[in-house]
Simulated scan of single mutants.
Amino acid sequence: MTHRIMPNEKLLRFWLDKLFSICSNLQARCLERWRMPGQSGAATDRFKIFFPHLLRRKHNDYLMLCSNLVSNQVAEEGGAMANVHDVAQYILDRTGEITTWKLQKLVYYSQAWSLVWDEKPLFPERIEAWANGPVVPDLYQQHRGSFTVSKIAGGNPKRLDQDGKETVDAVLKYYGHKSSQWLSDLTHREAPWLNARKGLPDGDRGNSVITHGALADYYGNL
């Protein structure tokens, strides 16, 4: 079911026009107040300070409204790929608080099986072969320094399309009850991480990318 009545561009233009109209009216009202006879210099000065502050508030309110409306519409249309933060929050909404180590592995397997089952990536961010297993650096920056996590800033699970949700649900059904250590050990036995780590001693830092092709080839042949 949909409540959309305008495409994205028209919707954004509508709300921006409304914003400019409101700002113009505010400016006109303030200028009129400044010109009123009998107003003290102090009162005029207060309005000169007040108006830019109020304008910024209204500007931010309406830009946020525009952004939310367009983002929600794009999400409903499936017109934009979810990012890794969206996927991570979808996982956390189903698992509750888990270790950051485990979250990284669940995100990794969600990407791998999306490439196999849906023939498309679940998120665009790169996966790197770190010493302790596959890691998405963009997600790591969100939870850096934390042992467990229950919320990812900016993550919006509504951005996942139906295929993505079903893929993550299937991944959680199989891998979700496993421990962080079990998942890490599993990735260390599998070709995508091993091949990306070739030439590096155990425990050494590395940032080689685990490609979509490597994931699809390996997990597609299991």
Rank of each mutant, 00 (worst) to 15 (best):
Y108H: 15
N72D: 14
V70R: 03
E76M: 08
N72I: 00
A112S: 15
L115K: 09
N83D: 15
Q104C: 05
Y140F: 12
L103P: 11
R126L: 09
D93H: 08
F147C: 00
W113H: 15
E125C: 01
N72Q: 11
Y108P: 02
T95R: 09
Q111L: 11
N83L: 02
Y108M: 14
H85N: 12
N132M: 12
W117G: 00
K102W: 13
L139Q: 03
G145N: 05
L139H: 00
S114D: 08
Q73Y: 07
A80Y: 00
N72G: 12
T100L: 00
A75I: 01
Q111D: 09
E128W: 01
S146C: 01
I127V: 15
Q111F: 05
V84G: 02
E128Q: 14
D86L: 07
N72E: 14
V136Y: 06
K120R: 14
Q89F: 10
K120V: 05
Y109F: 15
D118E: 14
A82C: 07
F147Q: 09
S114G: 12
K105W: 09
S110P: 07
G96V: 05
Q142C: 05
Y108A: 13
N132V: 08
Y90Q: 12
A82M: 07
S114N: 14
P137Y: 13
N83H: 07
Q73V: 09
A131D: 15
V74S: 09
